[in-house]
């Protein structure tokens, strides 16, 4: 009997994320591990609540959240911290720091946590900038106020690639971008997949009605 259950468990796709929100607008989201999902949430508040809950690995009373098969309610501080280190986002709520230039912004988490090494960070940054056709020397010396929207998104994306999260959320990717720029940022998915073949990528947006 137990062997049958085990084989069924093995056959069922493992979920990277399960989220539900009760109330006026019911939301239920299941994201299989290793997939790329495009979620459209009904409004900005729902989107913000979803991204915040996932990034904090913490949910409100009207929400349910499981990350990598682990319910986040009643998690200890250390377990929550561990879970959060497996998550990353390209979102306005994890924006760039205004008084640091692009390179300092990109390398800040790794310089603070001590991994990966700065040499690795430089290599990954260089590769990401090459993919999107940016010249590193001028780009990396600029502070966020001197960068365009697309460039800011690319800097944040490079930082995300360095962190290499198992579950990455990209929020409102096309917001404020021209059509040509949207075509360029479409390459984020391919770049993420190339670097993290087993990772889960979620694009979150608002449903246009």
């Amino acid at each position: 009997m137990s062997a049958v259950l085990q084989s069924e468990a093995r056959a069922a796709p493992q979920l990277a994320l399960r989220y539900a929100r009760h109330g006026k607008r019911e939301i239920a989201i299941d994201v299989p591990a290793g997939s790329v999902q495009r979620l459209e949430l009904p409004d900005a508040a729902s989107r913000s609540a979803f991204v915040t809950a996932v990034l904090k690995a913490r949910c409100e009373a009207d929400e349910e959240l499981e990350l990598f098969g682990q319910p986040v309610k009643n998690l200890s501080g250390r377990a929550r911290q561990k879970l959060r280190s497996r998550l990353g986002a390209l979102s306005p709520i994890v924006g760039l720091i205004n008084n640091l230039n692009a390179w300092e912004n990109i390398s800040l988490p790794s310089a603070y946590h001590g991994k990966p090494s700065l040499a690795e960070v430089a290599t990954i940054t260089q590769e990401v900038l090459d993919v999107f056709g940016l010249e590193p020397r001028t780009f990396l010396a600029r502070v966020p106020d001197e960068l365009g929207r697309l460039e800011r998104k690319i800097a944040a994306f490079a930082r995300l690639m360095i962190a290499g999260p198992e579950l990455a959320i990209i929020e409102s990717l096309d917001d404020g971008l021209s059509r040509a720029e949207c075509a360029r940022v479409a390459g984020f998915e391919q770049e993420y997949r190339r670097r993290h073949p087993a990772g889960t990528l979620i694009f979150v947006d608002i449903r246009e009605e």
Binding site: L55, N98, P109
Partner: peptide
């Protein structure tokens, strides 16, 4: 003023999401 601006514009929150302690940094 700089720290208030960072707090208001959500940059302190961004640091927290990167697991960077505000006291440390």
């Amino acid at each position: 003023a700089e720290m208030a601006m960072m707090r208001i514009s959500g940059q302190t929150r961004a640091l927290r999401y990167m697991n960077i302690d505000l006291y440390d940094y």
